[in-house]
Amino acid sequence: MRTVGSLLSRRVLIGTGLVLVMLLAGFVGWRLTGGGEYVAPTPTAAPVVRADTEAARASLEQLVTGVREGAAPDGEGAAAVAVRNAHAIGVEDVTATYVAESGNVAPDGSWTADVEMSWRTPGDPVLTEELKVGFDADGAITGFSASQGTRAPLWLSGPVEVRRTGSTLVVVQASADVADRYAELAATAVTEVRKVVDWDDPRLVLEVPANGLDTALGAQQGTYAAVAAVTATVDGSMKAGTPLHVWVNQDVIGDLDAPGAQVVITHEATHAATDAPTNTHRPMWLVEGFADYVALRDTALPLSKTAGQILAQVRENGPPEHLPGKAEFNTRSEHFGAEYEAAWLACEVLADAGGEQALVDLYEDTGRGIGLEKALQASFGFGEDELTARWRTHLSDSAR
């Protein structure tokens, strides 16, 4: 093998030498025949691709005009879909201001820009977000997405199905059948909530994105992965009186049966009816426990279904020492579901002790800023220590 390798090496070297000699001979001949000075060819520069910002601004103006006049462009492009969505939902007061390119223009001439957009859904304040808008080489809109930390509005996120009644508005990124299902859940939820609390002019808005809640709510990925639904202000603020919407996680609620899905929507409707997200006076266990009390009030489900997680914990470790606090309701908590069940059973204890109206009075009094201890004494004749003791006993008895 070594011998063969040496021969191959010599042949390569010899071949290389011959090529070199031939090149030198050619060069000398070129010089002798009067060739001019050798000049290396100038490299050809790649053409510069620029964003057609004027065409992009014209496309945004066409979008705004289309929403204002209810005239959608032809086709299934992003702008046409957005205009149809806006008309179905009733979106108004749309503006779109081109800010600047976001990143480089692609070789095919497409690019993404930051665009400040504002709009208003009937019953809501005007919302303003800086969104990412895609454009093709001709400046036509190719898509909308949220910037980091901003919310992606459903009407700009692809085709939606819209259902409305006098008290509900349901916007769903899914099939017509799925939209019908959520519309029925919303209507039933309004009826169930009004049996317990005063909701004179009900308005329940459900937004159901196709892929989870994180993008729709401008949250870090995974924040709401295990959450079936969230009630929040439309603008992300905590200002009292700000309109509330319910965002539904299809990835979670889609796996529930009809009674389970109804409990979720009625729970969130209770939050919406009582402005729970913007009221910081009530303890968290009362906020969540009361919402579950309303949602489970007319169900005949056994405790193994409605409180299975907390009862399993009680069997293993005994009852908790105190009512669940804010930290226990963290969406990433290991025992997230059990805390809701524990809070609901605390409200059940109160309703058994003083009746449903006493529980409603407690909820309303604490919402007005009356301290829990004082409100408990006024409605039930005992304080938080006695409530905790009764609740722990109820948990222990139920876990047997």
Rank of each mutant, 00 (worst) to 15 (best):
T33E: 14
E384C: 13
V294M: 04
E356Q: 15
P319N: 03
V178E: 13
T331C: 00
W155I: 11
T33P: 03
M117A: 07
T128M: 05
V190W: 01
R120E: 09
A272G: 10
D251Q: 14
V234Y: 07
A146M: 06
G17W: 00
L350A: 10
N330D: 15
G371H: 09
V91A: 11
T223A: 13
Q357N: 01
V360H: 12
R368V: 08
Q357G: 12
Q357E: 13
D298I: 11
V162A: 10
Y363D: 15
E37H: 13
T33Y: 12
T266F: 02
V234F: 05
S118V: 10
T233E: 00
G371L: 07
Q148E: 15
R84K: 08
A399E: 08
D108S: 10
R31N: 12
D235S: 10
A261C: 12
L256Q: 07
G123D: 04
A25N: 03
V230F: 09
L303E: 12
V360R: 10
N249D: 15
A179E: 08
G369D: 10
G15I: 08
L301P: 01
G308W: 03
H245A: 07
Q309N: 15
G236Q: 09
P202D: 07
V193S: 04
A399I: 04
L301M: 09
A79K: 06
A300M: 04
V172Y: 05
G383S: 14
G218P: 08
P47S: 06
